[in-house]
């Protein structure tokens, strides 16, 4: 690990100015559960580390009064899953927040960091896709919004350009008869990285028997987490039954385009994308039905 300068600005504009320092490479720091390891162990180098945890915009976590919620990019997982009101509305997000790392990691690791690290296997992202989340991005020249499924571009690379940071996530309000779930497959029961992951959400009809709309996000089966739009398009209006879940699984498998590596083989990931799509859709439906 080389020496670097460390800054902990207390307002967003100062942070953005520091990030744009000419001729210096800067890395923003939230929980640090990826960055510090990369600096110490994997040879990542930078001139300055900008700690964003003193910024109100990045640590906010609040209800927007019927218009959904905002989660600051640096809010740790444990703060998210410990909020009972939030948890009752965003079950898919809670699934993901509860299984990233161990408890110590959950006290530091943030969804913003999970997005910016842009791992294909990130646990938060398929759940965020299922929940139709939008990313709020800021730079010295202004702000912009990006749909979460468009945020990652390739392993380790996001849509953020030089001088831009992810400020917060905007979560739309969940409609009535809504359910969501996230699951990943790992060979052990904890302390592992997803071999494949899937996040699903559904809105059911009043009688709970038909799927009015649905979204499925997949992780670890392509260079970036994926929204499987074809599932949303083809299966809306279908009955809540195993045939529908199997159809969704088949479509999911057809979009999976994974690699083989030490954590899993390509065919295995394709297969698991189907299994997890099926399972998370079923749980999402059960959760929506339970709320009827």
């Amino acid at each position: 690990m080389d020496a670097f300068d460390y800054f902990a600005p207390d307002n967003l504009s100062e942070a953005l100015t520091l990030l744009a320092t000419p001729n210096k490479t800067s890395r923003p720091l939230a929980g640090g559960t990826d960055l510090i390891v990369q600096l110490r162990e994997t040879g990542l180098k930078c001139d300055q580390v900008i700690d964003l945890k003193n910024l109100a915009e990045l640590t906010q976590f609040q209800s927007e009064g019927g218009k959904g919620w905002t989660i600051g990019a640096a809010v740790p997982c444990s703060e998210i899953y410990e909020n009972a009101e939030f948890a009752s509305q965003y079950p898919g997000i809670i699934d993901a927040a509860s299984l990233i790392g161990g408890i110590q990691i959950q006290n530091r690791a943030s969804f913003g960091g999970n997005l910016c690290n842009a791992s294909p296997a990130a646990d938060a992202i398929p759940a965020l896709i299922a929940h139709s989340v939008t990313c709020q991005v800021a730079s010295k020249s202004g702000t912009r919004e990006v749909n979460v499924e468009d945020f990652c571009q390739s392993p380790g690379k996001t849509v953020l350009s030089e001088g831009e940071i992810l400020v917060s996530l905007k979560l739309p309000a969940t409609p009535k008869r809504f359910g969501a779930a996230y699951q990943r497959f790992i060979p052990r029961n904890e302390m592992d990285i997803a071999v494949a992951g899937a996040g699903s959400s559904v809105v059911l009809s009043e009688d709970g028997k038909t799927i009015e709309s649905l979204r499925v996000g997949l992780g670890a089966v392509a260079p970036t987490p994926l929204l499987v739009q074809e599932i949303s398009d083809k299966l809306k209006g279908k009955e809540v039954d195993s045939a529908t879940f199997e159809q969704a699984a088949e479509i999911a498998r057809s979009y999976a385009n994974p690699i083989s590596d030490t954590r899993g083989e390509d065919w295995q990931r394709v297969h698991l994308a189907g299994v997890l799509t099926q399972r998370t859709l079923q749980i999402a439906c059960e959760r929506a039905q339970a709320a009827l």
Partner: peptide, 23 residues
């Protein structure tokens, strides 16, 4: 786990999976 060049690809406790108490 080796790649074809003979490099171990799981030389860490994350990917060299030993059982934890939860398993």
């Amino acid at each position: 786990h080796y790649n074809e060049d003979g490099h171990m690809t799981n030389a860490n406790f994350l990917d060299y999976r030993m059982p934890t108490t939860l398993d």
